[in-house]
Computed example of a mutant assay.
Amino acid sequence: MFDFTGDRLVIGKFCMIASGVEFVMNGANHLSDAVSAYPFAVFGGDWAEAMAGKAYPTKGDTRVGNDVWIGYRATIMPGVTIGDGAIIGACAVVTRDVPPYTIVGGNPARVIRPRFDAATTARLLALAWWHWPVEKITRHVALLTGDVDAFLAAAESEVRAGPTYPSTP
């Protein structure tokens, strides 16, 4: 609706974004410390100078981490960062940053619970499987959709063993 403000929407890899999800960007922000929040200047003409010497507030880029699930009709407000592995509940209104591997829901969105304990979350973040080559993801795909401890054991074991390369004839 308003002029582009230069903010960006950055979405990581392997994200699931349901239908009806909305990302509100900084162009929708308005003055809140003035007498009126109405955007007079966007209509030009005699009102073109209404914002002279003023600027609409900005909250920076909106970032969605990797392996994030955003539920049906969720709304993500400007400048929010959603951490890797987070789950956003259906119809949630996300007004604040969401930590990695955390489930949030409601309006405004609140933490429902972490997906894993802090140590497991740290291990998953260190592995950053979403940056692996597709062949490595394919080797682990059954574990990625299964038990977290089994996945971590296999992935960390492979890291300790070092990279494997296909043999050449």
Rank of each mutant, 00 (worst) to 15 (best):
S32I: 15
A55G: 06
T102S: 03
P78W: 11
N29Y: 07
F43S: 14
A86W: 12
D67N: 03
E22N: 07
A86E: 05
G65R: 02
A41G: 14
D97A: 08
V98C: 02
A28I: 07
V64D: 05
F23Y: 12
I70N: 04
G44K: 12
G83D: 10
I87D: 04
G60Q: 10
F23Q: 12
V94T: 08
P99C: 04
V98W: 02
W47Y: 05
L31I: 04
R96I: 10
V21T: 09
I88K: 01
I70P: 03
M77E: 08
T102G: 06
E49H: 14
T75S: 15
E22L: 09
V68D: 00
G85Y: 08
T62I: 13
G53D: 14
V104E: 03
W47T: 08
T62H: 06
C91M: 15
M25H: 03
G79T: 09
G27F: 02
A50G: 01
M51L: 14
G83T: 14
F40I: 13
T75K: 13
D84Q: 07
M51T: 10
M51Y: 12
T95K: 03
V21Q: 09
D61E: 14
M25W: 03
A90D: 07
G20K: 02
R63I: 06
E49Q: 11
I87P: 00
I88R: 01
V94Y: 08
H30W: 11
F40E: 11
Y38H: 09
C91F: 14
Y72D: 12
W47V: 01
W47H: 08
I76M: 03
D46T: 07
D67I: 00
A90F: 04
T58K: 08
I82H: 02
I82C: 01
E22C: 08
G85M: 00
G85F: 08
V24Q: 08
Y38R: 04
G44W: 13
T81P: 08
P57L: 14
N26T: 10
W47I: 04
P78G: 12
W69F: 11
L31T: 11
T58D: 13
I70K: 02
I87L: 13
A90R: 00
Y101E: 07
I70C: 11
T75N: 04
R73L: 09
D33P: 10
A92C: 05
